[in-house]
Design a protein around this nucleic acid. Structure first.
Lengths: 257, 257
DNA sequence: AGCTTGAGCTAACAGCATTAACTGAACCAA
DNA sequence: TTGGTTCAGTTAATGCTGTTAGCTCAAGCT
């Protein structure tokens, strides 16, 4: 059922892909604001209004590029993960983290789209309700929803690794009582959403690690670290090592790699 | 020598201030791309080209707004710092960190300007060389330079606290040998730049804390945490507490607050 | 064969940054 | 006080931008 596309649908898909590819070119060359329908149309030998047959607005195009960015990192991370033995969960976490950073450094514009400031009006990407009439008539809303789902799939790669790690060899967590009540309920809800495998304090560690990772990479890609460092990679590696140490403290030594 | 301004210069400064204020209004209302010279001029009852008497381009205006944002957080942080006893350095660090987050949450648009994706072409904000002909003829370059300096002044608030903390009661750091050589030289250079007070491994801890702080706040303000949390404050407080514990481990107990 | 769908077009509107050329008032020096 | 310079402001124009309306024509389906 993969090739159940009519001739027209295939042509249409090809055009959509070409539009996105050219748009991505402008994006990486001169930033998101350089993406212009007129310029894309010019490059394709078309008129600008024709593009509205494929995207209801420029914003929607950019939203779809953002979703593609999430898929792109995710697949890069999955490749790195699958190149590491399945029984070495910590090794996989390291590989995935490195892949995340490397993708980000190699694709700063896409990274900014997916992990930087969202354009105003598209903040609620991660809304989970909206079950009624789900698909929605508005194709722009549909794109935003798809973007949110792509982001969720991205996050699931990290989450899955933490779940695996926990089931194989639980990592140290703070005691339940050390976590303030208001945080407890939120983390508890999140633990449910993640499948109920991780206990609430483990979710805290998971979020903490992700925050540190994001902070490192975002600071580097956004250029907010150049006042301190000329090459951010060694610091990243050091922080990554610290993170692993936190998840596998040398006390009860094991293979660890 | 504060009032050494001619009448014309005073009027000019007032106009510049009014332009910036209106621009800021558009910024917070609808994001950076909503700042338009024509709209500002319309609001002021002027023609758009007139604004070029005050700013050489829209980009320069935005750059100056970015510099103002740095000054704004910094002053908020300084207020919070000075409201805490000078001998309680850890308390000051907590106060400053909270002020940083609170300012960010209250001013998401300005935060994005200063700490989010930089507009393409203005990446090299933090360049330090360029001593020759320093001021430079290009007023746009001058603005970018001023923006970088404002960013440096912002960072100095945190740096100063870490320096003070270290001189009062040194915090735990990794051993020199645990830090890989390539990172060592960079941190060493940075330690010099910070005045040579902090030893190299302490600089590592400083950067690590700042990264965690930035990660927390950026994730929250950019909305990349809403899939996990409805209210980011408790998690921030928990991470902040963990940071403080790292700087003042309960082993050699002291006042701590 | 005839109708419907869809892909493309042109023309047009409204908004944008920016430049050029010009006017008039404020300032400053003789 | 006069004369020249500086500077704030103007209008007109260029060339971008997203987007809508209305049209044409070929492909696809009945």
């Amino acid at each position: 059922m993969a090739a159940a596309l009519s001739r027209r649908d295939r042509l249409r898909a090809a055009t959509v892909a070409e539009i996105k590819e050219i748009a991505r070119r402008y994006l990486v060359a001169d930033g998101p604001s350089a993406i212009s329908l007129r310029a894309i149309a010019r490059d394709m030998g078309m008129s600008a209004p024709s593009l509205y047959r494929y995207f209801p607005s420029l914003d929607t195009l950019i939203t779809e590029l953002t979703a593609d960015a999430y898929d792109s990192v995710r697949s890069a991370m999955e490749v790195a993960r699958d190149a590491t033995p399945a029984d070495d969960t910590l090794g996989r976490l390291v590989a995935v983290s490195r892949a995340f950073r490397q993708w980000a450094v190699a694709h700063p514009a896409e990274f900014s789209l997916a992990f930087g400031t969202p354009p105003p009006g598209r903040d609620m990407t991660y809304t989970k309700q909206q079950k009624p009439d789900d698909g929605a008539a508005d194709p722009n809303l549909r794109a935003m929803q798809a973007c949110g789902e792509a982001g969720t799939r991205f996050g699931a790669v990290f989450a899955q690794l933490f779940i695996e790690l926990w089931t194989r060899r639980p990592f140290p967590t703070p005691a339940r009582e050390e976590i303030p009540p208001r945080l407890r309920v939120q983390l508890g809800a999140l633990a449910e959403e993640l499948g109920g495998v991780l206990p609430m304090p483990a979710v805290f560690v998971y979020l903490s690690c992700w925050t540190q990772l994001y902070g490192m990479v975002a600071l580097e890609v956004f250029g907010h670290q150049r006042w301190a460092l000329t090459d951010a990679e060694p610091l990243f590696e050091a922080e990554l090592a610290a993170m692993i140490r936190r998840l596998d403290p040398p006390a009860a030594g094991s293979d660890g790699r």
